[in-house]
Structures are given as C-alpha cells and as structure tokens.
Computed example of a mutant assay.
Amino acid sequence: MTEHTTAARSKHDILIDAANDLPPVTTLVVHPCDATSLGGAIEARDAGLILPILVGPENKIRDVAAQVGIDLTGVEIVDVPYSQAAAAKAVELIHAGRGELLMKGSLHTDELMREVTASATGLRTGRRISHVFIMDVPGHAQTLFVTDAAINIFPDLDTKRDIIQNAIELCHALRIDMPRVAILSAVETVTAKIPSTLEAAALCKMADRGQITGGVLDGPLAFDNAIDPEAARIKGIGGPVAGQAQVLVVPDLESGNMLAKNLIFMAKADAAGIVLGARVPIVLTSRADSVRTRLASAAVGTILAAARRASGPLLKV
C-alpha cells in the first residue's frame, strides 16, 4: 500500500482493506437476534471478512432477517433455544474446530463471557482475558489502543501485565513491531497517594526484567502528556513514549470506559473492539456502532486469526 493511499483513507478503512486481502474467517456469531447484530454479521460476510455460522433460535433469526430484508441463503444456522445456550454452543463449536473467531450478537456481554471463561468448558488460556478498543480518532495521526475498558473491573498488577501483553501482541499482528505503551494515571510522578502510579512504575520495571516483552513502556503518564508531544515537552518528560503513545493502559474499567466514550462521543472517534487472551479472538460490537466500526472490528478479528495461523505479522497501521 502506498503512502499516498494510506493518507487518503481512514485508519479503519486501511484495516478493512488489509483484511480483504486475507481469506474470510469462519466465525461463530452468537445469538444474532436483532437487526443490528444480524445485519453486522451479514455486512462483514458481504465485505469478504468472515464466513458466519449463526448460533441461536433459528425461527427468531429468520423472522428478523425477513423483517429487515436480509437474505440468509447459504448461511448455516445452528438452532439453539435461547441466548445462554447459544453462547455455550458457540464455545463448544470452537472446541470442535468449527471456527476461528467469535462474534457477539444481541445477548449481554456477561452471558457470552461467562461461557468463554468457564473453568471446565470455556476458552481460557494461561493469559488473562482483556479487551482493546482500536480507536480511529479524527485529527490524531496514530491509531490509539485503549485497554482495558470492558472486561476487567479493578485489575491487579498481574492482570495488568496480561492486559499489556495482550495489547502488545495485537499490535504485533498489525505489524507495529515495538508499540509505545503508556500506563495512564492522573499524574506523571510516582506517589503513594495514587496507587495507579505505583503500579505503573512496577509494570515498567517488569518490562525491564523481561516479564513484559515486545513493547516500550513508560508510566505513570497523564493522558495529555501520553498523547501530545507539546504537553510532554512542557512537563519536561522525554523518552520514546511520552507524547506519542500508541497503547493507553488505563487504571481500571471505569476510567477506561469514560476515556473511550469521551473519544467516541466528543472526539467522534470510531472504536473497533476485540477481546484477547482466549483461544480465539472475540468481536464485541455495540448497537451504537457504525457500519464501518462493525466492519473494522471484524477485520481485526480476521487479521488476528490469520496471524495465529501464520505466526507472523500481517499489516502496518
């Protein structure tokens, strides 16, 4: 892809274009029983990103399709009676090798994640599961990766280590070889009065000792001096991360959720989302997502699935 083409298209358009160069990924779509979730799965299919298998009550899925004019010819439907059963069946189908990607439909995130994290039957790995928002912020030159604003409520130090490693490995799949990781707090100095600053310092030392690999970490950093070079210069903060961070690690889910929604609703960012750390990537979509955002989330899942098969980087963003 030429430099001129990259500049002319949004960051999410670039993701979608890159995923189009890969084979579509068989995707278990869990309980797509409203127009948004069913339409999103079919849009991703029509864009060449996924091959959906719809898991849920067949009559309800077909009724929704008929109401909004979606043609389900050739789409496999696995008939299960209700949302929790759909989540359990989709996880079972992943274990059976029927798909490489999960996509959330119209069920609650908690219902899906309960089956994903079940100790005996779920999709756990040795890594803590976490969520990353892939943010296309108008006026900001780089893609921003915000984590974790959706899964881990009050992560401890070990969980934050996994959250960071998951985000770094996502960046690697997108061919960001050494992502710049800012560990956010309210201030950029370490103080016992703000526990997140202590954890930020500890995480940076963990990276120094090889407990976190593949990225460049700095923290604590306040949001402004993490993403704005002038703010970092005024505060006298040097180094490769300050002012030009790519991954933003938030102290907890509340702060992360507020940051992400501020970027979405105030800065008009498009926010694709992906869950990492499970046996397969999981696409979490929202009813408020635009078509491009839903496609970008599917594109990230497709790229990750291909990266796992190839064990190598695929895309530069």
Rank of each mutant, 00 (worst) to 15 (best):
E3K: 09
A7Q: 10
R9P: 00
R9G: 02
H12D: 07
N20L: 01
V25K: 07
T26G: 00
S37Q: 00
I42M: 09
E43G: 06
V55N: 12
I61K: 01
G69L: 08
D79P: 04
A85R: 14
A88F: 00
H95C: 14
A96F: 03
M103A: 11
K104T: 01
L112Q: 08
E115V: 00
A118W: 12
A120C: 00
G122T: 10
T125D: 05
G126I: 05
S130E: 09
V132L: 06
G139Q: 07
H140P: 00
H140Y: 15
T143A: 07
F145M: 10
D148F: 01
A150I: 04
F154L: 15
R161D: 00
N166H: 07
M178F: 11
L184E: 07
T191D: 12
A192K: 15
I194Q: 04
A201D: 06
M206Q: 06
M206F: 13
G210C: 11
I212S: 03
G214P: 11
D218P: 01
P220D: 08
D224V: 15
A226D: 03
I227P: 01
R233A: 09
G238D: 14
P240Q: 09
A242K: 04
V247S: 08
V247D: 03
V249K: 07
L259H: 04
K261C: 02
L263A: 13
V275T: 15
G277L: 11
S286G: 10
S290K: 04
S290N: 12
V291D: 12
S297A: 10
A298T: 07
A298E: 12
V300D: 01
I303N: 03
R309T: 12
A310S: 13
V317M: 10
